[in-house]
């Protein structure tokens, strides 16, 4: 099913990367780097890390929004590969943890976006949900891209 979609996806990814798995690992890495930018800029927006993130609020807000949008875009090819091609797997503990957290990641993302647009919530809610989203992303990266780079091969 959807074999032609898979074939098109493979052709696009292997035009740049050596394999679709390598492409997935690099897109996931980009998403995690951008998630790190998200955490730093969010902390700055909430009045922390002023000595580390030396960017004033109007600009740091823009950086936070755009790094979030880019991070979301970077997750899309990864999610397509995971959800539509590989699917849910429980062959070993790494893939089981990855599959379960992968099922939750867009759920946490949807909740975070809800609280971004809602203004009646307690002040601690957004950092909590944003932190949870960053933690889920990092764990997903550790159980996929990091594993690939250290156990399989490091390269494009």
């Amino acid at each position: 099913m959807l074999a032609s979609v898979d074939s098109t996806y493979t052709d696009i990814m292997t035009a740049v990367f050596s394999s679709t798995i390598a492409a997935k690992a690099w897109f996931a890495t980009a998403a995690v780097v951008l998630a790190f930018v998200q955490v730093l800029t969010a902390a700055r927006i909430f009045g922390h890390l002023q000595g580390v993130v030396r960017i004033a609020p109007p600009r740091v807000n823009r950086i936070h929004r755009w790094s979030g949008r880019l991070a979301f875009l970077c997750t899309l090819p990864v999610a397509f590969h995971c959800i539509f091609i590989l699917g849910f797997d429980s062959a070993d503990s790494r893939t089981l943890v990855h599959s379960i957290l992968g099922s939750f990641v867009y759920g946490v993302f949807a909740v975070k976006i809800f609280f971004v647009h809602d203004h009646d919530h307690p002040r601690w809610t957004l950092p909590l949900v944003g932190g949870a989203l960053a933690a889920v992303l990092v764990t997903l990266w550790l159980t996929s891209a990091y594993w690939y780079f250290t156990e399989v091969r490091f390269g494009l």
């Binding site: 074999a3 999610a79 091609i85 699917g87 849910f88 939750f104 867009y106 909740v111």
Partner: peptide
């Protein structure tokens, strides 16, 4: 939102519609 989106992702992953 959390359970709806997560359940949709889980269901699609179980189906793996573009599995080669």
């Amino acid at each position: 939102l959390f359970f709806g989106v997560s359940a949709a992702a889980f269901t699609l992953a179980k189906l793996s519609l573009a599995e080669p």
